[in-house]
């Protein structure tokens, strides 16, 4: 019951925060005609009975595409509190159905958005955690500090030798020559545990190969305009200076579908409505999504996401 009240209070703090900043609250469909091509995200699909034929529909893995369609339609800055669904993700920090706060700020650069994220977190965590200072570091620097490796310049031999010296030699077989997977492996196993000492830590300037839906930096093509926020080493959210180039977006979709094929995953139809919206023109904006269940975990100092969800998957 305490958790329920805390959740309600958190939601009301979020709404009043954005109300003050005149950011519009929106709703977009959870049940969608299309989904993302990201090979790392498994989605739920279902059949809509629209006789004479059935139509496959998807539960959203994030409200990103729909919200960008609103932005392209001229909504101005918007935020949404909603559920997102990711198939097969279950653990101490994962429930397949989870709550997201996602917002987009028109004409904000990444720095402005990072400041806003910090302000909101400071307000939400007041009384629950002491935030002495916010630690900001670039991906390349923190990766190098912890491992002595260069995150941008991949050398399989060096990475492998690091892995065997640090008792994560499983990485050698799992990651092979896949640079991006190596980064995921080493970051999650070696770097992230080092971030536990910071209440709030912002990691920015991700390698371009991990750009996701962020723009490539205009001055340095090796770097994506992407940041992540960690609280006590737990990943809380991803923020981007949003990619608005429809052609580049379609290229990434195609690329991801190719990877899906190599991995033996089902091909995903590109979200044409989203691509059309980008073609029509997405205003320059930065956006971020935060995991609200994990935020509650921090506030209540619990170690299991099940403790902050009224009915987790096993009892849903």
């Amino acid at each position: 019951m305490k958790q329920l009240r805390l959740r309600a209070q958190m939601l009301s703090t979020i709404r009043s925060f954005f109300d003050r900043k005149v950011v519009l609250e929106v709703e977009t469909p959870l049940l969608c005609q299309a989904t993302g091509t990201d090979p790392q995200l498994d989605f739920f699909s279902t059949e809509y009975h629209s006789l004479p034929e059935n139509k496959t529909m998807y539960l959203q893995t994030s409200p990103e595409f729909a919200m960008k369609r609103l932005l392209a339609a001229g909504s101005g800055s918007i935020f949404q509190i909603c559920k997102a669904f990711r198939n097969g993700e279950s653990g101490k920090y994962h429930n397949p159905e989870f709550s997201i706060l996602e917002w987009y700020r028109v004409d904000f650069n990444l720095e402005q958005l990072i400041d806003e994220v910090i302000n909101l977190l400071t307000e939400l965590l007041a009384g629950y955690c002491v935030i002495e200072s916010v630690h900001k570091v670039s991906y390349g620097d923190i990766f190098n500090q912890v491992t002595d490796l260069n995150a941008f310049n991949f050398c399989q031999q060096r990475y492998a030798s690091y892995a065997s010296k640090n008792s994560i030699s499983d990485a050698i077989k799992i990651c092979g020559s896949d640079h991006s997977m190596w980064l995921d492996f080493i970051f999650s196993h070696q770097v992230q545990p080092q971030l536990k000492k910071y209440t709030i830590c912002i990691v920015d300037s991700y390698p371009a190969i991990q750009s996701s839906l962020a723009r490539i930096n205009s001055r340095n093509p090796d770097v994506a305009d992407r940041f992540e926020v960690f609280i006590r080493g737990i990943e809380m959210g991803n923020g981007f200076f949003e990619l608005s180039d429809a052609k580049e977006q379609e290229r990434r979709f195609n690329q991801e579908n190719k990877i899906r094929q190599i991995k033996g995953l089902k091909r995903v139809e590109k979200d044409q409505l989203f691509l059309q919206a980008l073609k029509a023109g997405l205003p320059d904006c930065s956006g971020v999504a935060l995991g609200l269940d994990r935020l509650l975990m921090i506030m209540t100092n619990t170690q299991d996401i099940e403790d902050v969800i009224s009915f987790p998957l096993g009892r849903a």
Binding site: E89, G91, K92, D184, F187, S188, H189, E228, E235, G291
Partner: peptide, 14 residues
């Protein structure tokens, strides 16, 4: 068993 999954990235079981 710990499920490790970056929001945008490969999932592992540690």
């Amino acid at each position: 068993n710990e499920f490790i999954k970056p929001g945008k990235g490969q999932a592992f079981n540690r």
